[in-house]
């Protein structure tokens, strides 16, 4: 007994030492962003590196709002991100239910096809896709980005794998109780898969928020552009204002962090298993 206690204390110490090292390694980029955002541009990449600048250039945080229409960009990105996330979560979890708990012809082939497209790099079909969108007169509209992002195979795959972890017995019991498949999806699967849905929301949100190449190709008008394109506007042909890029990045990181923190509570151990019991 005593032995296990002392060894568990040692274990605790090791765990916390690991955690602190980890936090340090992971926080370095953020610290760098903060530090770069209050420097002159020339000092951002200067050697030897200074974490705390001699002079704090707080103006960077006001300059970013005047140099580019940052507010418009943020609102655009919010609009796109929220629509894409809602569509993605709804349609993916819906489709994933069929792939995981229903049986129909061609299920495996269809599913493999889904995953297969994840393996094709976007650079390979970007041009045909753009030409098709142009035929639909969707280029230079937000709708184009929504269509591209909202129906990814990734979401279906993710949700399906989580549903796989939910015992089939649960669905069978519900069927015997006379619930329709739609009822099972809504009353049983959705509540049970909250951690999975949170995960998908986090990823869709982060991906759409940080997407760069899609908006770059499809959005040409300034009033349609997104934050990531805005950041790129600080890089011009012969110079790059990395201090402003970092200041704007820090600002644009805030929504992502809020989403992550807000969904944390669904990662509390036992949500799903307590559901299983009930």
């Amino acid at each position: 007994m005593v032995k296990t206690k002392s060894s568990s204390i040692i274990g605790k110490i090791i765990i916390y030492a690991l955690l602190i090292l980890l936090a340090f390694l992971m926080l370095v980029p953020f610290a760098w962003m903060l530090s770069a955002s209050v420097k002159y541009n020339k000092d951002v990449f200067s050697f030897p590196m200074k974490w705390i600048p001699d002079e704090f250039i707080w103006e960077n945080y006001s300059t970013i709002w005047t140099r580019i229409p940052l507010l418009t960009f943020i609102l655009n990105t919010f609009k796109l991100t929220i629509i894409v996330t809602v569509l993605q979560v709804l349609t993916s979890s819906f489709a994933a239910y069929a792939f995981s708990k229903l049986r129909f012809k061609g299920r495996n082939a269809l599913f493999l096809g889904y995953i297969g497209t994840i393996a094709v790099p976007w650079q390979a079909y970007m041009v045909p896709q753009f030409m098709m969108m142009r035929e639909f007169h969707l280029n230079n509209t937000h709708l184009a980005i929504i269509c591209l992002q909202a129906f990814s195979a990734f979401g279906v795959f993710l949700m399906r794998q989580f549903y796989e972890g939910i015992p089939d017995e649960l669905c069978e019991a519900a069927r015997i109780d006379g619930l329709s498949e739609y009822g099972i999806y809504r009353r049983i699967m959705l509540p049970l898969s909250l951690p999975a849905i949170s995960t998908l929301v986090i990823f869709t949100f982060v991906t759409t928020w940080n997407d760069f190449l899609g908006p770059l190709i499809y959005l040409n008008s300034t009033d349609l552009k997104t934050v990531q394109l805005g950041l790129r506007m600080f890089i011009t042909q012969y110079s790059s204002d990395y201090n402003l890029i970092m200041a704007a990045s820090v600002v644009s990181l805030i929504p992502v962090l809020i989403v992550f923190l807000a969904l944390q509570k669904y990662f509390v151990q036992g949500v799903a298993s307590s559901g299983l019991k009930g």
Binding site: Y97, Y114, T117, Q129
Partner: peptide
């Protein structure tokens, strides 16, 4: 089953699979 898959699949098909 198809009705579950359709909303995602149609979008996916038109905007990703075809290209």
């Amino acid at each position: 089953a198809y009705s579950f898959i359709a909303p995602n699949f149609i979008g996916f098909c038109v905007f990703t699979l075809v290209p």
